Simulated scan of single mutants.
Amino acid sequence: MALIPSQVLRVAILLSYLSILCNFKALDIPAHQTYGGSWKFLTFIDLVIQTVFFGICVLTDLSSLLTQGTDDREQQRQLRKLIFLRDWLMAVLAFPVGVMVVTMFWTLYLYDRELVYPKILDSFIPPWINHGMHTTVLPFILIEMRTTHYHYPNRNSGQAAVSIFSTGYILWICWIHHVTGMWVYPFLDHLSNILKVIVFVASFVAVNVLYVVGEMLNSFIWDKSRFRLLGHRCQQRVWTQQREMVPDRGVFNVGVSAQMAARRRARGGGTSVLVFQHRQRWWVNLARFMVAAVNKLDTLMKTVLNNIGMVLSRRNLMGVLLTLCNGEK
């Protein structure tokens, strides 16, 4: 059992995003004064998305707490609407856009930071705000996915919403270039028109792929029993099919008797069984690898949550002791 409730984690994450958002808007950055302001950057849009998402998560927790034990159908209906909106935001915007921002930013930053985050910005943006917008988004969203089972919408409707968002943002930065003559991201100035189209298409595809990755990860975390059975079923299928194999054709024949199978193996057909075992074994290994990866991710997330809970518990204890000491004085 985690030492800290998921509701407290969501409140802490929401407060951190609000702090980053307020401090970022208070910075005197020249880009804030140009056309589009902060809204031309996907990082800022993602920061707003994460803040709104965790705000809805906290509101859902409060509504669930207030409606607990009541039979008011109207309140239950409103709660279901909040849960649906929370799940939809997680699936369509919070996870794919958040992961896209983190991966793209640090990939370009490690290659050449001048392409995405010039050194001159270090004099305007403190490091903690930079990491709050480009680093902590990923662990926060993974922790949230680990603590709450999200119900993804229909694959077609979900990817349609992701496609509308990505297409809208691409058209938005193209419009900004049309108005100002400058690209939002400096690396686009070094690309030809064909390469720009390739980058836009690749980004469009990447966001849709991340939507599917989020859906699969959510299933891996919360539907692990289904994947535990996968390795057992694959192994059982191999054992069942090996009993009655026709080695010459590499197929199975349920009606072949044990004597015919023995005669075929005596003629040198036994090697095909080994070939089949080699071909089928990678399915079993893949299933076992998937189960092991899910278990390791589960253990890692539990360790992180427990460590956070221990730190906050110690701080709360110190705060109580200081309050008692001040009260005695």
Score class of each variant (00 low, 15 high):
residue 64 S to Y: 00
residue 79 L to F: 10
residue 102 V to I: 06
residue 112 D to F: 00
residue 53 F to I: 07
residue 39 W to C: 01
residue 81 K to Y: 05
residue 93 L to E: 06
residue 95 F to N: 10
residue 104 M to C: 08
residue 48 V to K: 12
residue 73 R to I: 15
residue 99 V to S: 12
residue 49 I to H: 01
residue 94 A to Q: 00
residue 55 G to F: 06
residue 56 I to E: 13
residue 117 Y to G: 01
residue 39 W to H: 02
residue 82 L to Q: 10
residue 43 T to A: 09
residue 62 L to S: 12
residue 50 Q to G: 07
residue 55 G to L: 11
residue 68 Q to H: 07
residue 107 T to G: 04
residue 76 Q to T: 13
residue 64 S to D: 01
residue 110 L to H: 12
residue 63 S to Q: 11
residue 110 L to W: 13
residue 40 K to R: 02
residue 56 I to D: 11
residue 70 T to P: 02
residue 83 I to T: 12
residue 36 G to L: 04
residue 100 M to L: 15
residue 78 Q to S: 13
residue 71 D to I: 13
residue 50 Q to E: 09
residue 101 V to M: 04
residue 41 F to Y: 11
residue 58 V to D: 03
residue 93 L to A: 14
residue 71 D to K: 15
residue 100 M to Y: 14
residue 42 L to S: 10
residue 109 Y to S: 07
residue 116 V to C: 02
residue 115 L to Y: 03
residue 121 L to T: 02
residue 99 V to R: 03
residue 91 A to C: 10
residue 57 C to K: 08
residue 94 A to K: 00
residue 72 D to W: 07
residue 112 D to C: 03
residue 107 T to K: 05
residue 63 S to A: 10
residue 103 T to W: 15
residue 89 L to H: 10
residue 67 T to C: 14
residue 105 F to L: 06
residue 109 Y to V: 07
residue 115 L to M: 08
residue 39 W to E: 01
residue 51 T to I: 09
residue 52 V to Q: 11
residue 97 V to W: 00
residue 48 V to S: 14
residue 89 L to F: 11
residue 79 L to T: 09
residue 108 L to R: 10
residue 95 F to L: 12
residue 50 Q to N: 08
residue 102 V to L: 02
residue 95 F to V: 13
residue 69 G to Q: 09
residue 107 T to L: 05
residue 69 G to D: 06
residue 76 Q to D: 15
residue 61 D to K: 09
residue 114 E to R: 07
residue 105 F to V: 07
residue 84 F to R: 14
residue 53 F to L: 08
residue 94 A to D: 01
residue 35 Y to W: 07
residue 91 A to F: 04
residue 91 A to H: 05
residue 65 L to Y: 11
residue 44 F to A: 07
residue 101 V to E: 01
residue 114 E to D: 03
residue 58 V to I: 08
residue 86 R to L: 09
residue 105 F to S: 04
residue 46 D to R: 01
residue 73 R to H: 14
residue 96 P to G: 03
residue 111 Y to E: 09
residue 45 I to P: 05
residue 102 V to W: 04
residue 56 I to S: 13
residue 109 Y to F: 15
residue 42 L to W: 01
residue 102 V to M: 05
residue 121 L to K: 04
residue 120 I to S: 10
residue 104 M to G: 04
residue 115 L to H: 02
residue 93 L to T: 08
residue 76 Q to N: 15
residue 111 Y to T: 11
residue 40 K to T: 01
residue 87 D to L: 03
residue 118 P to S: 01
residue 109 Y to G: 08
residue 116 V to W: 02
residue 100 M to H: 12
residue 36 G to Y: 01
residue 97 V to S: 03
residue 108 L to P: 08
residue 41 F to K: 04
residue 93 L to M: 12
